[in-house]
Design a protein around this nucleic acid. Structure first.
Lengths: 210, 210
DNA sequence: GTCTATATGCGGATAGAC
DNA sequence: GTCTATCCGCATATAGAC
């Protein structure tokens, strides 16, 4: 299980990098093998088909996103939320091919469609919980329907921000991708935030919006 | 030019339908030809390569979206905005493959990347203008930075709403797709809207949010 | 303009030696 | 586990007859 699982992992790692760069559909198994430095035959020994690679990567992503998002449910202050949002966006960034090329992913692995939707639904629930939590803590002044709306906007940001980002002026920016995504979500709170939490928001704006 | 351009148009129309359904990358020229009822060879007589079909469809989309979006710049009331948003989302819906499969589109037609970004930028400018216009008209109470943020959220919605929608519970819904997208954007105004415009928002909410 | 037939290449996947 | 060699199928695109 030593060298074997190592090769397996290298395949997954290389695939992740290539998928993130070009999308799963545009990455051939030959190219993955070349990237890893093994033969196409060997690759098929470890993964009998390409969708199995995608599926395995998705499972990793699913787990990681779930725990990022779970952490957000109990936030009591706006900088807690900032932290968990940052974590979440880093996860989405690390596996950005999943949401960006969601159609390719689903087409290749039909079984994944339901799981993606379920994952999205859990993100929505967690987002709602975190917003509601902030409202209870007095950080936000928002009606129930406003909280609902905020949660949808959060999930929209989490799932689609990177796609959107590519269409905007500053396209594939430098290091702060995750931070800028997280900042976008956080700034959605702006109309509802009360008290000194507002200062924190302004501090972040100066840093990430420009 | 009679029968000729008719076949050309039928090719474009069929391609649009198939692209919207499955994405350009998953639609072969054979399938387009079969859909139109002509031979693959004939299709290549009219369009020497598949990217040329994509490009032609994009140009149509570009023109149509531009005029939808231009119309929004001069809105003075919230129901004017509703109308133009609806129009905009109908256009995006009619050519939904463009933004949904933007990576495939750009990969196949490298020259389109800049034009997509330019189009997005013009959408942003128009959105900003329309929000600013509403603020001036007293429909919105929003600071300059809030208007900026709203405009970004609008463009985010216009470009990515349909992708997001597929991840959510009620996936590929029935007829009201464009209306629900437009409603999403409009409801982003909620925190800033003042006076009787709020009633209109509530009226729409009862209709589209459920 | 439209067809049939075909060239060409690539990507996924397998067989069998080492 | 890893390789080389190969098969198969599909998609783009072309050639040439009608």
């Amino acid at each position: 299980m030593g060298a074997s699982s190592s090769t397996r992992d290298r395949i997954l790692e290389a695939s992740l990098g290539l998928f993130n760069a070009d999308g799963p559909a545009s990455v051939s198994t030959h190219r993955i093998a070349a990237e890893v430095g093994i033969s196409p035959g060997n690759l098929h020994y470890h993964f009998r088909s390409k969708p199995l690679i995608v599926e395995r990567l998705f499972i990793r992503f699913e787990t990681q996103l779930q725990s990022s998002v779970d952490a957000s449910m109990s936030v009591m202050a706006i900088d807690d939320l900032w932290l968990t949002l940052h974590l979440t966006f880093e996860t989405v960034d690390a596996y950005r091919f999943v949401f960006r090329d969601i159609d390719q992913v689903m087409r290749g692995c039909p079984g994944l469609e339901e799981r993606v939707k379920a994952l999205t639904a859990r993100c929505l629930a967690a987002s709602k919980a975190s917003c509601a939590s902030l409202a209870t803590a007095g950080v936000l002044s928002a009606s129930e329907s406003a909280v609902e709306m905020l949660a949808v906007q959060f999930v929209f940001g989490i799932t689609c921000w990177y796609s959107f980002n590519r269409l905007m002026p500053r396209p594939s920016a430098h290091y702060g991708e995750a931070a800028r995504g997280a900042y976008y979500c956080l700034s959605l709170l702006e109309p509802h935030v009360v008290g000194e939490a507002r200062d924190y928001l302004n501090y972040l704006r100066a840093k990430y919006l420009r």
